[in-house]
Design a protein around this nucleic acid. Sequence first.
RNA 1: GCAGGUGUUGUGUAGCCUGGUAGCACAAAGGCCUUCCAAGCCUUUAGCCCGGGUUCAAAUCCCGGCACCUGCACCA
Length: 545
Amino acid sequence: MKGVDQEEIARRRGIYFQGFGIYGGLSGLFDFGPYGSRMKDKIVRTWKETMLSEGNIAEFDGTTITHTQVLKASGHYDRFFDFSVECKKCGTKYRADDLVEKRGVKVTLDRDWLQSKITELGIKCEKCNGDLGEVKIQKLMFQVDQEEGSEPLFLRPETAQGMFINFKEYYRFFREKLPFAIITVGRGYRNEISPRRALYRLREFNMMECESFFDPENETWVHDPEDSIAVTFLTNEGKEMKATPKDAYEKGIVKSHPMAYFMGLALRFYSAVGIDIGRIRFRQHRKEELSHYSSETWDAESLTDLGWIEITGIAHRGTFDLTNHIKASGKDLYAQRVIPRKEVIEKKKEIDYQTIKAEFPKQSSKIIAAMKDGASSLSIEGKNIDLRRFLVEKEEKVVVDRENFIPVVIEPAFGLDRIIYTILDHNLSVREDSGYVCLKIPYSISPYDAAILPLMAKDGLDVKANSIFENLLKQKFSVLYDDSGSIGKRYSRYDEVGILYCITVDYDTLKNGDVTIRHRDTRVQIRIKIDEIPDYLGRNPWNGK
RNA sequence: GCAGGUGUUGUGUAGCCUGGUAGCACAAAGGCCUUCCAAGCCUUUAGCCCGGGUUCAAAUCCCGGCACCUGCACCA
């Protein structure tokens, strides 16, 4: 939101702030404070509820330290090094491997090799023809060193891989039926060259990822795409139109049914956490922007004071990941489909043990061993014997009703930190009359259920308020108690961190046993009985109004 | 990584050019007052990014480092 410095409020109010502050801070690393941690938790909970209510989605919680083989198979390892070289004269930066490759030379990803090739080929700056400097290595993944001499490990650059390599566990869990999906909430790590802009580009970030698996012959989700929320779709051909995910699928804007479905889920989730759907659009990746494995990718973008930022990527990963893990691990990560039952007659050649024993009673074991090794002849007692005559052909009926295939994957990946940034951006508003800031987030992601405030900290009001506070805590409500300063100041304090209800204990409370409940957005107050508070907070009757 | 800019209590900032007690506002804590939307008064807590140099004296000038911000480049 323009006019409000989100970062300043986040820092002052303990929502989020730069990590390692007392040591000067480190860019791209942010911590969540007392309010932010709780909000983050509730956003994650909302996301999980949205996803898990599909019925055929299950959770996975994997490690962040990752086996190197996984990243070699996934292709990350090869992109682990970025070789850059800079013009000494004008400062233009190039990818060293690109420069060499452009000259038709097959590239070896090695610094010294690239350095000598550049010298050998006499490659100069493309802009000013100046001399190029030293080839530098940028590591894009964080490396974890093990014992000296052994292979290093890496912190995962995405949470997805754990869900691919454990595909079979989930395939069994879902009793071998597709489609199903796996979700993970966790951290990923990327060594960004220049992480900046608060929560937008981080080196350690929170992701909520979903990997859904389909039979390529039936790429359909179990429910129909959302048809009640419309947003703008921007295609890679530059077309722009307003549509619901269902429309978009039916009109062929979005090719994949599940992809359209997940767009709808995303919209439902955004709206549940208070993101303004009017400031959301889906943008299709251009051909040259697509990852090498993807045939179709859509980003959900939100409009914030940083401009349009990507908050979710929905990518068609095809069979890329499972295929690579099958190759690299040699393990079975196939799914099976039922096909029309057919009987196949298989011809097999078998060893005729009886004849061998009858003809060569003493050498039979030697002959059999030779045949099992695949020998076609053997010399026994000076005579060369053709072993092929001991093979008899047999026919066998085999019933085939299943076949293997590699499932295709559609991945909706939500960037939690950017979603938090968007939520704050869309919900921080300035009151017109006072100029004070109010964070109008939904109750479901509000950091606390309510604040309990005595009108004044005397005449027993504080004692009464405190007993209400203790009582609500016992009933597992998340509440705060505050008796400092004037009542108006306290209301404002909780408005700014998005707490929806302030419960005030005043002089009538002592007489009548009731309190006032004040609504954050409207500032309207009503009176209810003390006993009714739990029920009221549980029902949240003000939500959505 | 390059270029430019910046670093002063919890937050926002003044002071730096021209060296001499580090100031303001808000926030926070304690008190007085106050019967519902950041009231007032008194009191208090708390700061010059780090290291070195120049100087009688450095927030201020010089050197080095670190960090952050913006642009460019890079990048899921």
